[in-house]
Design a protein around this nucleic acid. Sequence first.
DNA 1: ATAATATGTTAGACTATTCTAACAAATTTG
DNA 2: CAAATTTGTTAGAATAGTCTAACATATTAT
Lengths: 219, 219
Amino acid sequence: MASTTEENYLKALYNLSNSQGEVNISELAQSLGVSMPTANSMVKSLQKTDLVVYEKYKPVTLTPKGQKEAALIIRKHRLTEMFLVKKMGFGWEEVHEVAEQIEHIHAPKFFERMDEMLGHPTIDPHGSPIPDNQGRMQEFSYTPLSSCKAGQIVQLTALTNSSTEFLEFLNSRKLSLGIEMKILSREAYDLSLVVSYADHLQETLSEKVSERLLVRIIG
Amino acid sequence: MASTTEENYLKALYNLSNSQGEVNISELAQSLGVSMPTANSMVKSLQKTDLVVYEKYKPVTLTPKGQKEAALIIRKHRLTEMFLVKKMGFGWEEVHEVAEQIEHIHAPKFFERMDEMLGHPTIDPHGSPIPDNQGRMQEFSYTPLSSCKAGQIVQLTALTNSSTEFLEFLNSRKLSLGIEMKILSREAYDLSLVVSYADHLQETLSEKVSERLLVRIIG
DNA sequence: ATAATATGTTAGACTATTCTAACAAATTTG
DNA sequence: CAAATTTGTTAGAATAGTCTAACATATTAT
């Protein structure tokens, strides 16, 4: 059984994997807030339990076994977030830290019950997909709002960043998942967008914000 | 902030404290399943953070600070057990292991919400008192069923042991908290008791069982 | 009260996870 | 393409928590 530390490495590797499933030691170290030698030595030890493939000076890759373990931890994280929001009255901006701890609990029934009580959800409160109990994660192909054109009508479906600060910003603008918005114009200078939604008739969103908002184009 | 390991030592010390609040190193070690030198060295380190008082070859004592920390961990454990039973459909025999992990989660709001959703319970599913959020635990003075007399009518209010095996035994006899039972007779030879309750008109309980059942005498 | 037993301590070692300093390889750039 | 920069590795050390073996103190029982 992987330790909490190992689980965190697996999760980071899963999230950092590029299209070829590769992760550099430096990215891994940075993402976990540890030094490169630390990441390096942990990667070597994950290799001994067949969770990653690794060769000196090459990027790291998760094995299928490592991918599955990682996805199952992410499943526990996202189920927990959903449970906290839907069943315990937490705001979507408050759940990350708690879920970060609860994802390491070893108690299959606990998460199965959450799953049942939530009606087997497929996305978490931030629109991210919840892997199934075999560790399979469905791929969504959402568009960043930043690459939409003036005149389009879109529905906010997910976020690429779920930091507390960003979520609090969205709260302050009454932006939540499911909301439909119309793109009124784009400022060529700074790529900010002017949009309207609900009772916000004219709201300006910086590029930094709009590239973190994932949408489905509905018109 | 105390580590998970330290929290487990505090909890054990709290539970093992005798009337003078003292615990021997050997008991502590045994209770945690570690060697005596391990317990000894941890006690020394707990002393550095003012959680225990300790002198060579003397028993260990929790400081008021240590007592409060311990009680607050026990509070999280028992709130969790109650939540699992009342809100997530767990049986009272399945909650201990999970609660043992969740008690170490650092997330005040998580436990406050449990507490609210449960209506500020004062006992857990096994009848043990839940310390308040200041770490104060109320004392109940229940009687072990084993020291009751034939003819008495009692209500089952708590257990002195909550092992899965014992709880499963109680389940098999349909014994649950709140049940009223009449003591029909006591066997002088092995101190077993014959009792009746609900639709069990004549059930024999060994001394081993009856001394683990705490009751309130109601007639 | 002394021997036998139980309890507690010290010393030294091991694993997991982390670090810094120094060095090596790979990549980028003028 | 060679120099500069970035990235990765090795070596060595630190801390937390654990162990066993050996020794010391306390307690119990004759």
